[in-house]
Design a protein around this nucleic acid. Structure first.
Length: 516
RNA sequence: CGGGGCGUAGCGCAGCCUGGUAGCGCACCUGCCUUGGGCGCAGGGGGUCGGGCGUUCAAAUCGCCCCGCCCCGACCA
């Protein structure tokens, strides 16, 4: 056999007759064979997007549910390596813009949360609280940080006295816990990893500049590194961070058309400064509260990455975040072929900086499937025919196309291919975003477009319409479970108009969508 | 927190209705053979059937209670 393997297995295929004839060669697929494969079973996107996502996460060896810990996940090596790549990209940019890394305690005195009225109200429902420690009931319980504004506010007040201490620009990489009712791997888990930046400034203008500068960094990494197009915008007042003056976010569109808030940056004003008495003496000698910002991206980005690029065969990773940019699969039959192929393979792999999949007892076919599922951008095939001809075959994960190139050009072609994949992934995603962005000019129109959209069924759109930034107006969207994702910073459409609820003048269209 | 589903070998499942002491496929181990998209053959190892209590001569199977996970809704990065 050897010629055939049908198209990738999918669940609808399981119901097909067990034996069939292709190219004159009969291939047998028993139900048990397909279902029982340790690596298999990816539900097609069109059938059930949410199930597809779960399958891709697990088959791609990115993560699995912790099972014994409710709502938590184990991030596996392949997934954590992506996180490390993202961490590097962000961390370099934070450092280059004057931020320093620090680490604050995981446990926060419960009373701290209560110091900012809106903050406590926003976070109370999702707090995990430690009441017993060392076998004794604590006098004051600790909450496990859901975010660190409060404890950082406390220390800021000790560290900041004068305008000379400002700006203070810190960042921490940490884990946090928010007791969520509904969890999905990477997108929303009880515990997750993130970075949280916290800065203090002497003027509102400077703080706002900082918040927007960080938003630019978030957008840059999302688009240039993750190949995930985003819309930068302000959150509405009802969607903003609990305790902020105004929140900003980057919003991405997943393949099912649902929005994903992929990063947020907050203008905290003086709210936490007042709550924690973070005062400084101005150049003029007067006392003022500091103007703060906070901002974060989390492991949720990995979920966004997966839902932006992956396909029914499994994970697709942009080269810039892929733990393995390529892998070489050697092909041989007899020992003498093996010797010749492996010798060339070793040189080539070293030249390309990639690994050889030299596992014995596995056919090349099973290796191709293996790396395909794990999203490796380029698979290099090298067999006796190639060695004889001085060639090598490069296969793109995203398009599935193969290119035969000479060994001498392999390195150049490999790098060119990686570069091309990175660009193509972005433009494909960008095109999808554009094609699924529509305008609406009445509430009925918005509802008609979004009413039947769900995470599983898909069909989501970004609906651009004129809506006043008023909780009462947004409440109307709840009737069909949509939200205002953001008020784009740049006017993405056609300027001012009248609010579809109140008829009042609003300066530009907002983005309404269903979201994760 | 409401609704639904599930829990039997590492994974996916059958067995349960009608009790009789556990089975299939994949994975794994050994050998031979194969290798350009999930090779084949032969042999082999692996399970306190989620937990507890009860009914019974006998419980994966029947009854009660508990636990956990997943999915769907209300809340959220």
């Amino acid at each position: 056999m050897g010629v055939i393997m049908a198209a990738p297995f999918s669940s609808h295929e399981r119901s097909l007759p067990q034996a069939r004839r292709m190219n004159g060669v009969s291939t047998i697929f028993t139900q048990a064979t397909i279902k029982g494969m340790a690596e298999s079973k990816i539900t097609p996107r069109a059938q059930d997007f949410a199930a597809w996502y779960q399958d891709v996460v697990m088959q791609g060896d990115m993560a699995e549910p912790a099972e014994i810990v409710k709502g938590c996940m184990v991030i596996k090596a392949n997934g954590y390596a992506v996180w490390e790549a993202l961490q590097r990209e962000f961390d370099d940019r934070f450092k280059a813009t004057g931020h320093q890394n620090v680490y604050f305690p995981l446990l926060i005195p419960q009373s701290f949360l209560k110091k900012e009225a809106e903050h406590v109200e926003g976070f109370s429902p999702e707090l995990a609280v430690v009441t017993i420690a060392g076998g004794k009931e604590l006098e004051e319980p600790y909450v496990i940080r859901p975010t660190s504004e409060t404890i950082i506010g406390h220390f800021f007040s000790r560290w900041i006295q004068s305008w000379r201490d400002l700006p203070l620009m810190l960042n921490q990489w940490a884990n946090i816990i928010r007791w969520e009712l509904r969890t999905r791997m990477f997108l929303r888990t009880t515990e997750f990893l993130w970075q949280e930046g916290h800065t203090a400034h002497s003027s509102h203008e400077e703080a706002l500049d900082e918040a927007l500068r960080i938003l630019d960094i978030y957008a840059e990494v999302a688009e240039d590194v993750m190949a995930m197009p985003v819309i930068k915008g302000a959150k509405t007042l009802s969607e903003k961070f609990a305790g902020a003056l105004r929140s900003y976010a980057i919003e991405a569109m997943m393949q099912n058309g649902l929005a994903l808030q992929a990063g947020t940056s907050h203008d905290l004003g003086q709210n936490f400064g007042r709550a924690f008495e973070v005062q400084f003496q101005t150049k003029e000698g007067k006392l003022d509260y500091v103007w703060q910002t906070s901002w974060g991206v989390s492991t949720r980005l990995i979920g966004g990455l997966i839902m932006t690029h992956s396909d029914d065969k499994g994970l697709v990773l942009p080269p810039k975040v892929a733990p393995m940019k390529g892998v070489l699969v050697p092909i041989y039959r007899k020992d003498e072929e093996r010797t010749a192929v492996m010798e060339t393979a070793r040189k080539l792999a070293q030249d390309l900086g990639i690994k050889i999949d030299d596992r014995e007892g596995q056919t090349p076919g099973s290796k191709f499937f293996h790396w395909e599922r794990r999203g490796v951008p380029v698979v290099i095939e090298l067999g006796p025919r190639d060695v004889a001809a001085g060639n090598v075959v490069l296969k793109r994960r995203d398009t599935g196309t193969k290119h035969t190139v000479s060994l001498a050009e392999a390195r150049h072609e490999f790098e060119k291919m990686l570069d091309q994949i990175q660009r193509d992934l972005y433009s494909t995603a960008k095109k999808r975003l554009n094609e699924n962005s529509v305008q609406a000019n009445s509430l009925a129109e918005v509802e008609k477009i979004l009413r039947d959209v769900t995470a599983e069924r898909g069909g989501g759109k970004f609906v651009f319409t004129h809506l006043k930034d008023d909780p009462a107006c947004e409440a109307r969207l709840k009737e069909f479970k949509a939200t205002v994702r953001c008020i784009p910073l740049a006017d993405e459409q056609d300027g001012a108009g009248t609010c579809i609820i109140t008829g009042e003048h609003v300066p530009k269209r907002v983005v309404i969508a269903k979201a994760y």
